[in-house]
Simulated assay, not measured.
Amino acid sequence: MKHGRNILSAVAGTLVALAMGLAGTAQAASITSSSFNLSPDQHDRVRTTPDAAAIQAVPATFQFAQKDELVIGLSVAWPPLSTYATDAKTVVGFDPDLAQLVADGLGRKLKIVPIAWEDWPLALQSGKVDAVVSNVTVTEQRKEKFDFSTYRRDVLGFYVPDSSPIKSIREPKDVAGLRVITDSGTNQEKILLAWDKENVAHGLKPVQVLYYDDLAVRDVALRSGRADAILSVNSALAYAAAQKGGIRVVGTISGGWPILADVGITTRRGSGLAAPLTQLLNDLISSGKYTQVLDRWSLGTEAIDKARTNPPGLPKS
């Protein structure tokens, strides 16, 4: 078992959890395994035209990784955010669709570079990619090295096997004594560890935190009863529940619990690309293209009203 790194200070987040829980339940109900085009033929992918204002805002000093291309780093791991199509090589999902819109808006050809999620900071800092679109939450610590242009709410979900007696997980006491799977080095891990710390301080049973590097093994562990619950990316778990059955949502929370959190297109700090990307995202929101892409992947409940550059992020702990 790996050990936690940073722990958010635990404060009551019941109202946020309840609000996010209603949204997450609606999202899970709306997703079906037939909702998505997983064919390599993405003829129904939403496209747009070059955005002159956004292009003009890109600093002349910005050096793109490839001539005439926008190179996007993307972790292919969590459908419907991203996955491989039926040909096992074409990347499809919400993140690649958004990356396509951004490349179109900048008048460049999209090139997706699959990367492990843990490797996105190095990929950016080395100049291998121009930006990362991979469910990266805005945090104050990350803002020291990276810039963000926000594009989606960060929502986490608690899921249990269908046969589980657990009906609801909304607050720290609900996980006391449970075996809970989560993802190492993530905000969900921080939240779970914070909840556990609060429980132990109040004399409740500790959480047994479980980690699996292999998603298939993780899935088997949950469904077979080797774990009581999982806390991870809600959109991915909702997709898995609809596609395979056998698990169900029992609660959702903000990825920034106890505050709301957004994920953003991530770029090198001070590169000058963040502001043009934010402008482009807001133009896509205004045109309706942004909503079309969200709806294509049943992610409408995670929409934002306005993209922002480097908004307040999750605090350092």
Rank of each mutant, 00 (worst) to 15 (best):
F64Q: 00
F62T: 08
D68H: 14
N37G: 04
I72G: 05
P50M: 05
V71A: 08
A54E: 03
R47K: 09
I55N: 05
K67V: 15
A52I: 11
F36L: 05
S34H: 12
A53R: 03
Q63E: 14
T61M: 00
N37C: 07
A52G: 09
Q63P: 05
Q56K: 11
A60G: 11
V46L: 06
F62H: 13
I72R: 06
A65Q: 11
D41P: 03
A54F: 01
T61F: 02
T61R: 10
R47H: 06
Q66G: 01
F64S: 01
S39H: 13
R45H: 06
D41G: 12
Q66W: 00
D41E: 14
P50L: 05
F36S: 03
V58Q: 09
A65F: 10
Q63G: 12
P59T: 01
V58P: 07
P40C: 10
A65L: 11
V46Y: 00
F62K: 09
L38H: 08
A65V: 08
F64V: 03
K67M: 14
S39L: 14
L70S: 02
A65T: 14
D51M: 01
D51H: 13
D44L: 12
T61G: 05
A65N: 12
F36K: 02
D51I: 04
T61A: 14
D68W: 05
D68C: 09
H43M: 07
V71H: 00
Q66M: 08
P59K: 00
I55H: 03
I55R: 11
A52C: 05
S35G: 12
I72E: 05
D51F: 06
F64Y: 02
L70E: 05
A52S: 15
Q66P: 01
I55W: 02
T49R: 15
H43N: 13
F64H: 04
R45Y: 03
A53V: 01
I55A: 04
A57Q: 02
A54C: 00
T61Q: 11
D44C: 07
P40M: 12
V46M: 01
T49V: 15
S34Q: 13
H43Y: 11
K67D: 15
E69L: 10
V58D: 06
T49P: 06
Q42W: 12
D68Q: 15
A60D: 13
F36G: 08
L70V: 04
F62V: 11
E69C: 15
Q56I: 01
P59R: 01
T48R: 07
P40R: 08
D44Q: 14
D44G: 06
H43V: 14
A57T: 02
A60S: 12
R47P: 01
Q42V: 13
R45P: 00
Q66T: 09
F62S: 07
F64P: 04
L38F: 13
V46R: 05
L38K: 09
F64K: 02
L70Q: 03
A57N: 04
E69A: 15
D68N: 15
N37D: 09
L38C: 06
S39T: 15
P40Q: 10
A54Q: 00
Q56R: 12
V46P: 00
F62P: 09
P59F: 00
A60Y: 03
V71M: 08
A53I: 00
L38G: 07
S39F: 10
Q63W: 02
F62R: 07
R47Y: 00
A54R: 01
R45Q: 12
T48H: 05
D51K: 01
R45I: 09
N37L: 07
P50S: 09
A60E: 14
V58E: 06
V58Y: 07
P59V: 01
V46C: 02
R47S: 08
